[in-house]
Design a protein around this nucleic acid. Structure first.
Length: 288
DNA sequence: AATGTCTTCAACCGCCGGCGT
DNA sequence: AACGCCGGCGGTTGAAGACAT
């Protein structure tokens, strides 16, 4: 506590300026026009330095806000719609192993962002585990938990939600864009793949943010911007992640969820070692 | 039909770690 | 080694929609 305070004092002394000028900036929900500007700018130039992007793109937004909007909503590789039972399963397993490392968890769910996973956990899964804690305060670790009994119900819920038109009510600009030539451009990449529509989410942000940055660092500084180039890199990451998932899915079949503590152990024991598979534990995570 | 409550999720905030100088 | 900048992360909030009464 004292340490933290001391740190803050140091920061104050350094006079760290805010990530962006606060005055005159728009906050809150993004308008379709802003989305359009952001998507078109990044498509053409890459995001470059987020801090400078709003100015370059002509947006009255904080760079952070732009980054968030892009990574959580506008990126072409985002998978939208309900979580599948497999995804739910994986989230539970990974959460058991990693805790609230949403970015790490999301990196193993193609096309899902950390925000998606976090929201999904908080709104759907946490309740189950909270009620579990109440039902089994000193839980014996072997039994099938009430949550797992509800598992089927949860999967039904996810499936039933599939039939609901996504974001129908909000005039989703991304969906609109999807039907424009920009969308065509994005689709070209996906159509060369397996067509599942998903890609590495945060992994494509954190893991591929370097690739994005690499692309735009060339594109922004003079070289002809190449959205396709950018997307191809994203695609490569996507494939890698999906291979991980394929391997991972074999080790955790849906509807066979065990107690999280057991499954975590199983997960860690069963998880293939070698190659890039242990990227599962991000170096940053391991180091902490 | 109106109102109140609950749920969902996009967005913000503040902190942290990595990297360059 | 110290400093400053930047991107990324996790926690939290609040608006909007869904649902219940």
């Amino acid at each position: 506590m004292g340490m933290k305070r001391a740190k803050e004092e140091v920061k104050k002394k350094k006079g760290r300026r805010p990530c962006c000028e606060r005055e005159g900036l728009t906050k809150g929900a993004w308008s379709p026009e802003e989305d359009k500007i952001l998507v078109e700018f990044i498509t053409q130039n890459g995001h470059g330095t987020w801090r400078n992007l709003p100015q370059l793109a002509g947006l009255l937004r904080c760079g952070k806000s732009c980054r968030l909007r892009w990574t959580n909503y506008l990126r072409p590789d985002i998978k939208r719609g309900p979580f599948s039972p497999e995804e739910e399963n994986m989230i539970i397993q990974l959460h058991g192993a990693l805790g609230n490392k949403w970015a790490s968890i999301a990196s193993h769910l193609a096309g899902r962002t950390d925000n998606d996973v976090k929201n999904f956990w908080n709104s759907h899964l946490r309740k189950r585990f909270d009620s579990k804690a109440l039902d089994q305060p000193s839980s014996s670790s072997k039994s099938v938990s009430p949550d797992m009994v509800k598992w089927e119900g949860g999967s039904f819920d996810a499936e039933s939600r599939l039939s609901i038109p996504f974001n129908n009510s909000k005039g989703d600009y991304f969906l609109h864009l999807w039907n424009t030539e920009i969308g065509d451009s994005f689709r070209n990449v996906h159509e060369t793949g397996d067509g599942c529509g998903g890609a590495a989410s945060r992994s494509s942000t954190s893991q591929s943010s370097s690739s994005l940055t690499k692309v735009e660092s060339t594109s922004v500084i003079g070289k002809t911007p190449s959205p396709v180039e950018m997307k191809v890199e994203l695609w490569d990451v996507k494939k890698e992640t999906e291979e991980d998932i394929a391997v991972f899915s074999d080790t955790c079949k849906p509807y066979e969820v065990e107690d999280p503590s057991d499954s975590m152990l199983k997960l860690l024991l069963d998880f293939p070692i070698g190659g890039n598979d242990m990227a599962f534990l991000d170096p940053s995570d391991v180091s902490t």
